[in-house]
Simulated assay, not measured.
Amino acid sequence: MTDWWLWLYVASMAGGTMLFLAWWARPCGVPAIEYQVAVAVPVWSGLWYAVLALGDGRVTDPGGQSVSWARYADWTVSASLLLVALALTATHALPRRHPWLPTTLVGLNVTMIAAGLLADLSAGSRSRYLYFALGTVALLGIFAVIWGPLRSVARRQPDGLHHAYVEAAALLTLLWIGYPLIWLAGPSGAGLLGPTTDTALFVLLSIASKIGWGAFDLARLRGLARRHELALAGRP
């Protein structure tokens, strides 16, 4: 049953890739970099979950639990790309991209993912929850940048784009809160969830985060670009 969920994820990433490529073929005024990032997320993520579905990408921790290191390899890059996509939305209509903001977000994300992997591999519960706490602090740092300086930058854009950023940031925040909660309830934490349920929840949440969120963000940008073109043409 676990393998079924993993292959479902791979198929979903393939479908998401095809969707984003189809939109890229008709960009509707949205810059190519937005589509490149959107496509890279499911391609990278789908490859690593295919590794898991084929029975690889795992090690056994000191307590005898199976740890999916391939999942962390996926998140290190795919989650960083999602943050870059959000930063691109925040600076969509601005002449400068403020590169220090996505760099900070990526650095915090790598710290969060590394802490999560160390927590999964830790032998003792004290060190396990210490690493988990470090990862949680990094996640809170990500939220602080998203809702602090990055939102301030987004406010310099026209109202429509500013609202698009706020909506995308709110959705991403809501989705990402689910990851530590599932970790805490799963085999790595309190053990309230079995391996199959843990995998299923991570799969569903990751599909929503990578394909659902990416489609939402791109659709908003495409809609705003169309409205701008119609306004320039003098059409309602």
Rank of each mutant, 00 (worst) to 15 (best):
T136W: 14
A73C: 09
M1G: 13
T76I: 09
V37G: 01
G191S: 03
P195T: 04
A185W: 13
A200V: 04
P236D: 03
R126E: 15
G234P: 08
Q36M: 11
H92S: 05
R235V: 14
G178W: 02
Y129W: 06
S209K: 04
S12N: 01
W147R: 01
F132A: 03
S80D: 15
R226G: 10
T2S: 14
A14D: 13
R97L: 06
L54S: 10
L140Y: 07
V30G: 10
A185Q: 03
L94A: 01
K210E: 12
R227W: 01
R128G: 05
L47V: 12
W4N: 11
D74H: 01
L105Y: 10
G107V: 10
F20D: 01
Y9A: 02
L221P: 02
G191C: 10
A169D: 04
G148A: 14
G141M: 03
I113L: 06
R58S: 15
D74M: 04
A40H: 10
T2W: 10
Q65F: 13
G214C: 11
R26G: 12
L139A: 12
A233N: 14
L88I: 00
L83Q: 01
V41P: 05
A215I: 02
S188L: 15
G189H: 08
I211V: 11
P102N: 02
G15K: 03
L19T: 13
L47W: 14
W176A: 14
Y49V: 03
A225N: 13
A144G: 13
R220Q: 14
T91Q: 00
Q65A: 10
L221C: 06
A93G: 09
P62V: 08
L181P: 04
I211F: 15
L150E: 15
G234S: 02
P180V: 02
W48H: 06
S127I: 12
I146N: 00
I146L: 06
S125R: 15
W183K: 01
M1E: 08
T103Y: 07
I142Q: 06
Q36F: 13
R220W: 04
E229H: 12
D120N: 13
G64K: 04
L192C: 04
A164F: 09
L108R: 03
A200F: 02
A138R: 04
A231F: 05
W75I: 02
V43P: 05
S66D: 15
V203W: 11
V67E: 10
S78K: 09
S209F: 03
L139T: 11
D61T: 07
D61G: 08
A225P: 15
V59A: 12
R126I: 11
W24N: 15
V39F: 04
L121V: 07
G212P: 03
L86T: 01
P31Y: 04
L205Y: 14
P42C: 06
G234N: 03
R222Y: 00
M13W: 06
L130T: 12
A168I: 06
R156D: 04
A144Q: 14
S209W: 09
N109C: 11
L121H: 15
W147G: 04
I207Y: 05
L118A: 09
